[in-house]
């Protein structure tokens, strides 16, 4: 297999290398790619959508349909990981508890675990002591990460970033919380059900905004139709429409990232993990 692989990639590689000679040079201003379609986007983004970040305007408006499915891809991945990995918790396995006042660790078999007790706290089977530095730093940072994420979502029009990057950052903040403490605490704060519903909702905001345009009487995703609803003219309606879908994207991406992390890091048990 290795030899076969080497032969294949050598042939493929040489072939591909050979055909690069026909390409326009790197950074060539007059290449077809730079002259055929993209000038339209660059020159018309402001007058069409009032968004200076051309990538955002192309992403969420001109090719907004692509992006809707891009978000759906993420949702699909989340659902897929859930479907593949998630196993309902079995209560027969043993669990570890710690008696807070004494620091004694006990192992409980079956479902005789101390319910609702506040002297016993559940700990992971691969328990590590409470790491002060990491925990503290993370607690300090999570807010700012989230704030920054929201900033990225909100300013996708003017600077790089947008719903997707902001969503990942938001998701990363919760992942950071899970890493710094333990998974159960994170799940308690941001439950699986929340993640699942939020992920659907996020994509639904996107697709729903599009469908709303359709019901108002224009094409699908044509945010100009939202103008009367938002009280703006058609161009600004596009700008605001982009913001709306960016928010949807951010929600979906955040939730899915968290959801996938929950499932991956706990092998589907959502009990204890990385």
């Amino acid at each position: 297999m290795k030899i076969l692989g080497k032969i294949t990639i050598t042939i493929c590689g040489l072939l591909l290398l050979f055909f690069t000679s026909d390409f326009p040079d790197w950074g060539d201003v007059n290449s077809p790619a730079s002259t055929h379609l993209s000038p339209y986007f660059i020159e018309h983004t402001i007058e069409d959508t009032a968004v200076p970040n051309i990538v955002t305007s192309v992403l969420a408006d001109y090719r907004g349909y692509d992006t809707m499915f891009e978000t759906t891809v993420i949702l699909t991945a989340g659902l897929a990981c859930f479907l593949l990995l998630r196993i309902p918790r079995k209560d027969s396995i043993h669990r570890y508890y710690r008696h807070e006042p004494t620091g004694v660790t006990i192992r409980v078999e079956g479902d005789r675990y101390p319910k609702g007790s506040n002297v016993f706290t559940r700990i992971d089977s691969s328990w590590v002591p409470y790491d002060l530095i990491i925990n503290f730093t993370c607690r300090l940072l999570i807010h700012f990460i989230q704030l920054f994420a929201l900033y990225v979502v909100a300013h996708g029009h003017h600077s790089p970033g947008g719903g997707f990057q902001g969503g990942v950052l938001l998701g990363a903040s919760v992942i950071l919380f899970a890493i710094s403490g333990n998974l159960r605490a994170a799940i308690k704060r941001f439950g699986e059900k929340t993640a699942a519903i939020l992920s659907s909702t996020g994509v639904f905001i996107y697709a729903g905004a599009g469908a709303l345009c359709l019901f108002i009487g224009e094409q699908f995703l044509n945010y100009s139709a939202l103008g009367p609803l938002l009280g703006t003219d058609r161009i600004m309606a596009r700008s605001h429409g982009i913001l709306i879908v960016e928010i949807g994207v951010a929600m979906a991406v955040m939730a899915v990232m968290i959801w996938i992390y929950y499932n991956l890091s706990s092998a589907g048990k959502q009990d204890e993990g990385l």
Binding site: D131, I133, I134, T137, C138, L140, L141
Partner: peptide, 10 residues
């Protein structure tokens, strides 16, 4: 400045 020592410590 906040994260670097934490990462190092980790």
């Amino acid at each position: 400045f906040i994260t670097s020592p934490t990462a190092t410590h980790a």
